[in-house]
């Protein structure tokens, strides 16, 4: 009988200790969890927040990683070197971006915004989850040119990062998964939903006459592929840009091996379009005028050219001007200047 009581006591003590340790863990971490903030009339995000709950601390860790050159081979190419806030997290004024050892990227760096609603990444859709996306530029020899192991080792060797990882993920051991999750947390907060267009739709502002006419024109002629609220339908289409013979980039077909996908690229969002020039998957079109001229006169017909562009998009000069006036209302200066999205430590 005595023995049994002893066993019971031991068991109880064990259980008590266990719960104490758990309590310690949760109080030491004290994460300030938060929900993603976005307009009420937007659809639900596709990102699975249950597997990576947002916290102020996780977002901040992701921000530091995003702006840290340690993620690249020679230290010169943080994510932010190609994804610059003022260009809606594309590369300002560049067709292709610069990477390790004076190399160029294959494509125009895509602006980063409203990523929680995207399920495929890269202009060819080769990446199927936001968490795995950063591994592509990190390991691409012409971009950040690193290996995952090296990046993890470099981060682990700092005094700075292990405690932050411990706080956010409960372990100071930096892993591919936790690094990716932290980056995702920051990337997910890049929400652009406060342009003049958004304010007009919410009844808080009014379009000028050209903007209003441009809006009508846009909904009629452009929204088939660029529907609000994201101004993309996330599909892959061939807009009739001929293949560039040195880049030799056939887009979606590279991933699917299906000739029907030849020269199809992801339809880009037009939010902040005025800030994210140049345009086209390889940045060959330098301004909005030329982009609309392409749709008006230069769409190259091929078996995979989008059926909506069989006759191009007929536009008068007058209409072009109106559409451009409307596109400028998609610029969200509060996003382009949001300090929370800027480099850490800057005033």
């Amino acid at each position: 009988m005595k023995r049994i009581i002893t066993i019971l006591c031991l068991l109880l003590t064990g259980a008590l200790l266990c719960s104490l340790v758990n309590y310690e863990n949760s109080t030491r971490r004290k994460l300030r969890y938060k929900n993603l903030e976005y307009p009420a009339d937007w659809p639900a995000p596709v990102y699975d927040f249950k597997s990576n709950p947002l916290s102020e601390e996780g977002i901040e860790l992701g921000r530091q990683l995003f702006y840290d050159g340690l993620l690249s081979k020679d230290g010169n190419f943080p994510c932010a070197s190609c994804h610059q806030q003022g260009a809606a997290f594309g590369t300002f004024d560049h067709d292709l971006s610069h990477g390790f050892n004076d190399q160029h990227s294959l494509r125009n760096a895509p602006p980063l915004q409203n990523l929680a609603w995207q399920s495929l990444f890269h202009a060819d859709g080769g990446i199927n989850h936001l968490d795995v996306q950063p591994l592509a530029p990190i390991t691409a020899p012409n971009e950040m040119a690193e290996t995952i192991d090296n990046v993890l080792a470099k981060l682990q060797a700092t005094k700075h990062y292990p405690p932050l990882f411990k706080q956010v993920f409960g372990s100071a051991q930096i892993t591919t998964q936790n690094m990716s999750k932290a980056l995702s947390q920051f990337l997910l907060t890049m929400i652009s939903a406060n342009s003049k267009y958004d304010r007009v739709m919410a009844g808080k502002d009014t379009f000028s006459l050209p903007q209003q006419l441009g809006h009508q024109m846009f909904m009629e002629k452009c929204a088939g592929c660029h529907p609000p609220p994201f101004f993309t339908d996330f599909s892959f289409r061939n807009i009739g840009l001929p293949v560039e013979p040195t880049l030799n980039d056939f887009g979606r077909m590279t991933i699917t091996n299906d000739p029907r996908d030849s020269l199809k690229f992801k339809v880009p969002s037009l939010r902040n379009i005025a800030a994210s020039y140049p345009y086209g998957h390889d940045g060959r079109i330098f301004d909005l005028q030329s982009m609309l001229d392409h749709y008006r006169n230069e769409v190259q017909q091929s078996p995979t050219t989008d059926s909506l562009l069989q006759k191009g998009i007929p536009l008068s000069n007058f209409q072009k001007g109106q559409i451009i006036a409307f596109l400028y209302t998609l610029t969200d200066s509060s996003f382009l200047k949001n300090k929370k999205l800027g480099a850490p430590g800057l005033p």
């Binding site: 995952i148 993890l152 591919t176 999750k181």
Partner: peptide, 22 residues
Amino acid sequence: NVTGVQTGDLDPAKAMFWTWQT
């Protein structure tokens, strides 16, 4: 293959993972 970054033997750092085409 479709649920983000995995751990253990499936860690992309094992170099058995295509980063450019998930």
